[in-house]
Design a protein around this nucleic acid. Structure first.
Lengths: 204, 204
DNA sequence: GTCTTTTCATAATGACCGTTATTAAACCAC
DNA sequence: GTGGTTTAATAACGGTCATTATGAAAAGAC
């Protein structure tokens, strides 16, 4: 019983997600959030908890809905295909929405006040999870002969993450899709060929 | 005539620079700045102007004092040496100071409130300047046969910037020097060899 | 209908933000 | 010394921050 909620919680979360994506955790004010969601402050609090809780729910949603190319990439048959899917997935996500470019996990909180430290750590952890999955995938690839024995899976994973992070920074700076595509191609051109591949023929 | 300034303006600027480096433009409060500099608010205003002006002076100082490996890199004889110096310079700068890791030009303002927009644009411009210098250097390198004719200087410059940006993000996340060195090495391993070089022998 | 419960909108909370009056102290010229 | 000028420290400014108290409105239960 009781009065019914008049707004769509999912839509409100999507709107809040976009605000955080564009302005980051600390840069987004409740004034921004109420305007974007069309929901008054107390309603946001009752539906999501405080700002940090709201951000975490937005982050979860982001990982599910937008970062979904990661599991997809990990399923690719070769390490090079995995890398290509990661790079082009990031490229696409970082430039798809003109009014919130870049990546929420990067824009969210790179540096900030001490109050934002828990959120910053959460984002670091989120990136670490992705990097670990990539490393494990590349370890498997090396075991399968898909990467040379001299390849270093942890270095490849960290390198790939670094490039996507850099692309996110550049996308937030307004880089065009074409310029970022050149970055992705250059990153991929360095990819080590496995014994089971003819060098330089594999492509996403 | 009049009373003498009791604090060292240069030292205060250095201290403020470190605060901005660690917390970014918006994350740094005047409470942080007064504590770090040992200078009261009104004295900071009289010496540097407002917060934005103070940040810009800190940024200028940063470029002179810490980003000095860029001109040094541009003077290297080969494009690969330039790239290596950039990567290892960034690696070193991003990890040299444990209490303000990463890069001021990245940490300063990636995303934020609308009020920080002018500062954000200034940092974007600073990165664009560096990228342009790199691109021009690589164009020269291609003309000199130091890079293959098929090489794309603008892509190489953007790629190099992306990797250093990514390394800055990772350094701010607490990555060790070793892990970042692996990223730099991986980035360098992709470097195209010029007709005047024996492939894969050049090293920083 | 009335009661209970939940949501709604308005507006207030204390804290901190960047920025400045204000006043006392220190210095040089004379 | 005295006057004029600059800096120093204290404390205040209005504004915005995240958060919440308050009371009206809406819905089901009885």
């Amino acid at each position: 019983m009781g009065r019914h909620r008049e707004f769509d919680v999912e839509k409100a979360l999507d709107a809040a997600l976009c605000v955080f994506w564009r302005k980051g955790y600390e840069g987004a004010s409740y004034t921004d959030l109420t305007e974007a969601t069309g929901v008054e402050r107390p309603a946001l609090y009752s539906a999501f908890g405080n700002k940090e809780a709201l951000f975490r729910q937005a982050l979860d949603r982001y990982c599910e809905r937008y970062f979904d190319y990661l599991p997809e990439a990990l399923d690719r048959p070769t390490a090079r295909d995995v890398a290509a899917r990661i790079l082009y997935g990031a490229l696409d996500l970082n430039t798809r929405y003109p009014d919130h470019t870049g990546c929420l996990v990067i824009n969210g909180a790179l540096a900030g006040s001490d109050e934002a430290e828990p959120v910053r750590q959460t984002l670091i952890e989120a990136r670490a999870v992705a990097e670990t999955q990539l490393r494990e995938r590349f370890e498997r690839a090396r075991a399968e002969g898909d990467l040379p024995q001299t390849a270093r899976p942890e270095a490849l994973a960290a390198f790939l993450m670094a490039v996507t992070h850099g692309m996110a920074v550049q996308a937030k700076a307004g880089f065009s899709r074409d310029r970022l595509e050149a970055v992705a191609e250059q990153a991929l051109s360095a990819w080590p060929a496995g014994s089971s591949e003819i060098s330089g023929t594999s492509r996403a």
